[in-house]
Computed example of a mutant assay.
Amino acid sequence: MALVLIRKIDVMTGEIADIEEDIELPEIALTAPSEISDRQFFQQCAILGLINEVEALAAVSTGTMPAAMAAFVETLPSEEQFAARMTIQGATVFHRDHPLVPAFGAAWQMDDAELDALWRAASVL
C-alpha cells in the first residue's frame, strides 16, 4: 500500500480538492541486464568511485587494468589470477552471471542487489 495524493478539479466550478488515498501499487521487478559493454562497466565503476576516470579511460583504450582491480586479482587464488586478468583486461562484454562477479562484489562490499544496480546503471550509459 502507498499513500498517494489525488488532485480533483471540478471542470464546471474550478474547485480543487486534494484527496489522500491508500492504493495498492504493483511490485516492479528490476532485473539487471545480462551483459554490459566494457566501456559501460568501467565508466560506471568510475562514477561509483571504485576506480578513477583516468583508469577507466585507460582500461577501455589500452586494456590497462585499474590499480584497485589489480589489487583485487592479487587476492584471488593463484590458479585463478591469470583468467581474472584476461577477463578484466580483455573482455569487451561483462556478463552479470560470470563466476568472477560475486568475488568482485565482495571485494567492494557489494551484495547482489548492489551488483544488479551497477549493471542497470551501466546499461543506460
Rank of each mutant, 00 (worst) to 15 (best):
E80L: 15
D18T: 00
A2W: 01
F72W: 15
I28W: 02
A107W: 12
R7H: 08
Q44M: 14
M110R: 13
P77T: 00
M65Q: 08
A70H: 07
A56L: 10
I51T: 11
F94H: 00
A58G: 09
I19M: 07
I28A: 03
A70S: 12
S123C: 05
A107K: 03
S123A: 14
H98E: 08
A32Y: 00
A107I: 04
V73M: 05
I16G: 00
G14P: 07
D116Q: 02
L3D: 08
H98P: 02
E80R: 15
A58I: 00
L50V: 15
P99A: 08
I6S: 11
F104Q: 06
A71N: 11
R39K: 11
V73Q: 01
E15Y: 08
V11S: 09
D116R: 05
A67F: 02
P33Y: 06
I9T: 12
E27I: 04
Q44R: 09
I36F: 06
L118Y: 02
T13Q: 04
I16R: 05
E15M: 10
L5D: 10
I88W: 06
I88L: 15
D18F: 11
H98R: 11
L118F: 07
T62H: 11
A68V: 14
A17N: 10
E80I: 03
Q43I: 13
A121P: 02
F41E: 05
M86V: 09
Q40L: 06
R39T: 12
M110P: 09
L50A: 12
L50M: 15
S123P: 02
T75K: 14
P99E: 08
I9Y: 05
Q44I: 10
I28K: 04
P66S: 05
V60E: 10
F42H: 11
F42E: 03
L125N: 06
I36Y: 02
S78T: 10
N52E: 12
V60M: 13
E74F: 09
A106K: 14
G105F: 06
S78Y: 03
F41H: 05
E21H: 08
I19T: 12
A71G: 03
L3Q: 13
D22A: 11
A106V: 03
E24V: 10
N52G: 11
G14W: 06
G90N: 01
Q89F: 00
E20Y: 07
E114C: 01
L48V: 00
M1K: 13
Q43A: 15
I36A: 04
L125F: 09
D18N: 06
E21K: 15
W119D: 00
A83F: 11
F41T: 01
I51D: 04
V60W: 07
N52I: 05
R85H: 14
A46E: 07
I23P: 00
E80W: 10
E79A: 09
P26K: 13
V11L: 15
I23Y: 03
K8R: 13
A122Y: 02
T31Q: 11
T92F: 06
Q81W: 03
Q40W: 03
D38R: 14
S34K: 12
L3W: 10
Q89G: 12
L30Q: 03
A17P: 01
G105L: 06
E80Y: 11
G105Q: 07
V54Y: 10
I51A: 04
G105Y: 07
